[in-house]
Structure formats: structure tokens, C-alpha cells
Design a protein around this nucleic acid. Sequence first.
DNA 1: TCTCGATGTAATCATTATAGTTACAACGGA
DNA 2: TCCGTTGTAACTATAATGATTACATCGAGA
Lengths: 144, 144
Amino acid sequence: MKKFSSRYSISVHILSLVALSPTSCTSDFIAESVNTNPVIIRRIIGMLKKAGLVHVRAGAGGTYLQKELDEITLLDVYRAVEVADHEHIFNCHDETNPRCPVGANIESVFRTKMLQAQSAMEHELDQVTLKQLVSELKEKTGSI
Amino acid sequence: MKKFSSRYSISVHILSLVALSPTSCTSDFIAESVNTNPVIIRRIIGMLKKAGLVHVRAGAGGTYLQKELDEITLLDVYRAVEVADHEHIFNCHDETNPRCPVGANIESVFRTKMLQAQSAMEHELDQVTLKQLVSELKEKTGSI
DNA sequence: TCTCGATGTAATCATTATAGTTACAACGGA
DNA sequence: TCCGTTGTAACTATAATGATTACATCGAGA
């Protein structure tokens, strides 16, 4: 399967950096930690900005949190860069043969089950705040 | 985001057909209900066969269940055609900057959280047997 | 044994998402 | 005004998906 893109993990990386770094977080600075191109970072930051998670100082440069760390969950980040609310991650083939009893009803039955599974996953993401995650990062590094 | 492929929903469709159809299920017959090319069906059936869910009468034609309907869960089908056991659906960027405290530790922390979310979803899939799903299909059609 | 329908699989093609890169206009603080 | 930074557009490469054609092989039944 094609996995979720690395946009998500990079987003968490960016937000952690912004939260922890005492210096100004420019896209160049972040790109160096992530080890990718600054444009990739700017594109992702654009999505985080749209979602109201960060704001950016145009011209001057630098990204800053728009909310408190404990007000941002992993679900918020996931919604910002991967899967919008009410978007289905399980694709279902459509235009099945309506004259076949299975073809006529498989979609609604399948979708219902998949929605339950997806919700269970997203509920888990909603349980973790960036504050918790950053605190685990700090533990691992022995404080920054 | 790139969703899970329709292989999964088609697989469930195929297995339901095989379970319910009184006549022999050839790839042509199934393809007509799914409304796609028979080769697509044969490829997916090949994966279901490898997973031990069905067997196929070579030469003569026709696909048959290898297990009882209540012995196959949606997780079994998912494992057969989408995500192998221990495979991560959340990608994580690697080769981060090891000299940055965030870059050095983000991967292990992120992966742990994602694994919990993925497990929650797969657990839900494990709760549904094909027997239940087929029974819901029957209800909708008013018996086949 | 021969025929004929079905399977298994390779090869090709179009489409789409991701990821990386270059280029450049516009912004705004020093 | 200058210069570093942001915001985007444009282009390229790669990979997964889905559809399709082609064909060797299998095996049940005539």
C-alpha cells in the first residue's frame, strides 16, 4: 500500500522544532534538521498556517505557534496535512453492477465498517497532545 | 492523501460473491459484478489464494472459500491485499539531522504514537467476520 | 486425445501523489 | 534602500494504481 506521506511526520517535526527552538525558525533552519529542501518545509508550513496551527512573519521570516502546545493534538496535525474531516481513507470501488445483489449493496456495508476502523485510529491521534510528545522528546535528549 | 487502494473493497466483494453465489465464480463472472477487467480480479484472487483464504480450480475455473465464513475477519483480508503484519502505514521521514535534538529523536517518538493508532484501527477490523458482513448484505437485499 | 474455456502472468499505458529542485516576485525589518 | 525570507509556479523523477492486450498452461468433458 501507499502509506501516508511523510508530510505528517515532517509536520510534527516542524512543530516540535518551533516549540523548542529558542532561535527564530526559518525554513532553511528547519530544512537542515529535517534534511530536505526548504521549499518542502515552506509548503507544509503553508498547510499548517491554513489550519491555524502556526503563523509566519512574512518578510522578516520565522514560524511561531498559534496555539498552546497542549491545545494541539496529533489529530489536528493529521487533519491539517493528511486527511480532512469526513474524508475516507479507505477507498471503495463504485459503479458496481446494480443488478447483482452483492454489487448493489457492498459499498454501503463496506463503508460503514471502514468508517468505524478509521474513527478508532483518529480517536487515538486525538489523545496525544504536542505537549506530551515534546515532553517525550525532551526526556530522550536529556533536555535541550 | 493517497487512500488505501480499492483492492481491499474489491476483495471483500469477491469473497462475498464466492460465499453467496450458488453458481461457479469465474473471474469473468466476478468482474461483471465488480464492473472491472477480469485480470484485475485474477490478480486479487491470486493474493487471496496466497493468504490461504480461497482456492481456485485451475483449468476448470472457479474460486472457492478455503475457510469458513466466520473464520475470516476483515483484518485477514486487509493483511492479504493491503498491509502485511508489522508493516507501518504511517511513513516517517528518516535521515534527519542527528546533531539536532529534535531530528535525532523524532522518529522513535513519532513511530510509537503511530503504531498505537494503527493498532487501534486494525483491532476494529479484526472484530468483523465475513459472516457478519455477508449477513448484513443479505438483510439489505432481502435474501438472495 | 482433442477441444475449449479458464487461469496465471507478463507487458504496456494512463493517471495520480509524492518529493525534490530551480527560479523569482513580493514582503518587511534593519 | 538593501537583503534575507516567504510564497508559489514550473518542472522533473519516481512509484502505486488501475485498465488492457496477449498468450502459455491447465484440465474437465466430448
